[in-house]
Write a protein that binds this DNA or RNA. Structure first.
Lengths: 322, 322
DNA sequence: TTGAAAGCGATACCAA
DNA sequence: TTGGTATCGCTTTCAA
């Protein structure tokens, strides 16, 4: 290969890595030779010698379809532009020693960077390791140690609070709430937003209106069954994720309740699609894809900024109480 | 590291790779030392020396959320069990020289395996390269060279035909059809199934009932606008993907058509979710996750089988013509 | 069953 | 601006 261009192997390396101090003519000769021979440098060798891996990892806990899609879609372009591969490391929240597996993963791969989502994004051990190893990382929707490293999020507490107040302003007094998956800080933040709104409006909390979910369609449906089966059912239900809101909606339909006339349903929306697909749903639009894009930007620029992206409330149809 | 256990570096290598001919006592000593020192072998070095990469790639063209989620979910477990990382190589169908980018990707990574989805799964250049490089691969829903290598699919033609016949049996004569993304063979197969069913039942094809889509919610909605705006609108619409069917359903709702009383809507369903989430939809259940699991199985077992998984038609609500 | 030595294919540092 | 050489941390081959 290097002979074909009449240069040393080191010069080829310079061309590949776009280093300075290569005479244009030389560079051209090398590139010509590379093209002619269909030469592709070995990533394994470059990784070993250079101490880089040309790979970044997206570490997330079995996320919903839209969430995952948004993340990958947002990261894809920038990764390709940087010549870096995206490794998706999805793990089951329940079944693993949180962090252990991820740690050994990091140690072995010597990654060029990592994008972390909750709950792993809030594990100090993981962040410690990354810091020690000098691996840049960006956290999405972190809850703890907010000032640590770069992160991208929306104001979950504020969004849930605003949505709840909106429902209250429309006249709803009994508002069911489906809590997000345990262990996810956004779940707590959203719950707190809901509770604060009630408190501010002087509405006493009715514990029976609180249902635990786990971010899935099925868990939203189950929660709705409980809520709508109550002796005094709520006139509105606010689910803390889009998949759960869809589950609630589905059950409301099945039970013959008119949405949104008889019952208002609100949720979050990772993709702007939920509110389109399921008419009658009022949602907080969480721009996952934009968040991922921003995260990639921070990662490759090496910035340590803490970015809070704006959310938006998207309303479809009237949502006053029955 | 090797000193700590009092063995040569080679023996450590044997333990790591679980090779035979290591005395149990020696193995134990090495493992103890590895644990004590928190030793993690470098993937880059193992990859370079061993000619493997410990990585497989999922190559797919910007797929829908549920499709992607199903694929990754299906591959995840087996990859983890095999100690292999999953690289997601998603690319825009439109913007790239099909195959070129993927080829150079393959050449550089020296992958341990690849899972291919259409349309890349049907590119002979890509398969040729993989064969030459000795990289095992499994194709999902391939259309061309069906006997080449391992593959997993469902009978798309049969499914579309059966669904169409079912609609006809219910009394529908004017059945709109939303064609899938151009360049995807499954699009053609499903279209052919639809056409064959019409032919078999002696129904003349009305070209205005055929709409081109591109597998997205939006394109399904656009197609529905066209179809429902027709002077003589169809009494049923069959979309060749779940996202498009959802788009059709949404437009039908928006235009005040009662589903399924005034109009029947059918589609495919990659996750069993569409029919749950969107009541009134009759779907062909395509078990993407199961397909991915099977693909991983074939890949790691090195089998060259051609697997055709069964589909299922899931009906919700009556779908007779208005 | 274990070890010694020779790569794997690039990069990095220092000379030229 | 270019080249030589050690080096990265393992696996492979062959010998013991």
């Amino acid at each position: 290969m290097s002979q074909r261009a009449g240069v040393s192997i080191k010069t080829v390396s310079r061309v590949i890595n776009n280093e300075r101090y290569v005479r244009p003519a030389t560079r051209a000769r090398v590139e010509e030779a590379m093209a002619a021979l269909g030469f592709q440098p070995s990533y394994a060798a470059r990784a070993l010698a250079g101490g880089k891996s040309f790979q970044i990892a997206l570490v997330c806990s079995n996320p919903g379809p839209y969430y995952l899609h948004g993340l990958i879609g947002g990261l894809r372009g920038r990764c390709a532009a940087e010549g870096v591969r995206l490794i998706v490391h999805a793990y089951e929240t329940e079944t693993e020693e949180l962090g252990e597996d991820v740690l050994s993963f990091f140690r072995q791969m010597n990654l060029d960077g990592a994008i972390l989502t909750p709950p792993i994004a809030d594990q100090p051990v993981v962040l410690d390791h990354l810091d020690r190893a000098g691996t840049p990382y960006v956290r999405i929707s972190p809850a703890a140690d907010l000032d640590r490293g770069a992160s991208v999020s929306i104001d979950n507490h504020g969004a849930a609070r605003m949505m709840t107040r909106r429902l209250i302003d429309m006249g709803h007094q009994r508002i069911g709430f489906v809590i997000g998956h345990k262990g996810f800080s956004v779940s707590e933040q959203r719950l707190e937003g809901y509770l604060d709104a009630l408190r501010e409006c002087g509405i006493a909390l009715d514990g029976s209106l609180l249902q635990q979910g786990e971010f899935s369609f099925q868990s939203g449906a189950a929660a709705a069954e409980e809520l709508l089966g109550l002796r005094r059912p709520p006139t509105a239900i606010f689910a803390s994720s889009d998949d759960m809101a869809a589950g609630v909606l589905s059950v409301a339909h099945r039970r013959g309740a008119k949405v949104p006339d008889q019952i208002a349903i609100a949720g979050f929306d990772d993709t702007d699609l939920a509110s389109l697909v399921w008419p009658g749903l009022t949602t907080v639009r969480q721009p996952i894809r934009a968040m991922a894009e921003r995260a990639a930007e921070l990662l490759f620029a090496g910035e340590q900024e803490r970015v809070v992206l704006p959310f938006e409330i998207i309303e479809r149809g009237s949502t006053g109480p029955a």
